[in-house]
Amino acid sequence: MQIFVKTATGKTITLEVEPSDTIENVKAKIQDKEGIPPDQQRLAFAGKQLEDGRTLSDYNIQKESTLHLALR
C-alpha cells in the first residue's frame, strides 16, 4: 500500500509499505529515499509519536495515510 510522509520542510515522500511493516522498517525506507538516518527520525500520526517496534497496523495506519516526520 502507499503512504505519504510529510517532512518538516513541507516535502511529501511517497512510500510503498505493508500494514505489517514496523515503524523501524518505514524509517529505513525513508533513509533509502532521503538519506536521513533512522535514529534522527521521529514519526507521528494523528498526533501520536510512533514507536520503532510497533507496526503500521498497530496504529491503524491505512493506505494513503500521511505520517509526519520530524528530525531530532
Rank of each mutant, 00 (worst) to 15 (best):
M1D: 02
M1V: 06
M1A: 03
M1Y: 14
Q2P: 13
Q2I: 13
Q2D: 07
I3Y: 01
K6V: 10
K6W: 12
K6R: 10
K6T: 15
T7Q: 06
T7S: 12
T7E: 06
T7Y: 11
A8H: 14
A8M: 09
T9C: 06
T9R: 10
T9P: 12
T9F: 10
T9G: 15
T9L: 12
G10W: 05
G10K: 06
K11E: 06
K11D: 15
K11G: 09
T12W: 13
T12F: 15
T12L: 13
I13P: 00
I13A: 02
I13F: 12
I13Q: 02
I13M: 10
T14V: 10
T14N: 11
T14C: 04
T14R: 15
T14I: 08
L15Y: 02
L15D: 00
L15N: 00
L15E: 01
L15I: 08
V17L: 06
E18D: 13
E18C: 04
E18I: 11
P19T: 13
P19K: 08
S20N: 14
I23Q: 02
I23F: 03
I23A: 03
I23D: 01
I23T: 10
I23H: 02
E24C: 05
E24N: 12
N25E: 11
N25R: 09
V26M: 04
K27W: 02
K27Y: 03
A28E: 10
A28T: 14
A28M: 10
K29R: 10
K29N: 14
K29L: 14
I30T: 02
I30A: 01
Q31F: 11
Q31Y: 12
D32R: 07
D32Y: 07
D32G: 08
D32W: 13
K33I: 15
K33A: 11
K33D: 04
K33Q: 10
E34K: 05
E34V: 08
E34R: 05
G35H: 06
G35S: 08
I36D: 03
I36E: 02
I36P: 03
I36W: 10
P37W: 05
P37K: 09
P38V: 11
P38Y: 12
P38T: 11
D39T: 07
D39G: 12
Q40L: 10
Q41Y: 15
Q41H: 03
Q41W: 03
R42C: 06
L43N: 00
L43C: 01
L43D: 00
L43F: 03
L43M: 03
A44E: 11
A44Y: 13
A44T: 11
F45G: 02
F45A: 03
F45C: 03
A46G: 12
G47A: 05
G47S: 06
G47T: 05
K48T: 13
K48P: 02
K48S: 11
K48V: 15
Q49M: 13
Q49H: 14
Q49F: 11
Q49D: 12
Q49G: 11
L50V: 04
L50P: 01
L50K: 00
L50Q: 01
L50S: 01
E51N: 12
E51Q: 14
E51A: 09
E51Y: 08
E51M: 07
D52H: 07
D52L: 05
D52Y: 05
G53P: 07
G53N: 10
R54Q: 09
R54W: 08
R54E: 05
T55E: 04
T55C: 04
T55P: 06
L56R: 00
L56H: 00
L56N: 01
L56Q: 00
S57L: 08
S57E: 13
D58Y: 11
D58R: 03
Y59D: 02
Y59G: 01
Y59L: 05
Y59T: 02
N60A: 13
N60T: 05
N60V: 05
I61R: 00
I61Q: 01
Q62W: 11
K63A: 10
K63M: 10
K63L: 10
K63N: 14
K63Q: 15
K63G: 14
T66H: 12
T66M: 11
T66P: 02
L67H: 01
L67C: 02
H68P: 01
H68E: 07
H68S: 14
L69C: 03
L69T: 02
L69Y: 02
A70L: 06
A70M: 07
L71P: 13
L71H: 06
L71A: 09
R72F: 13
R72I: 13
R72L: 09
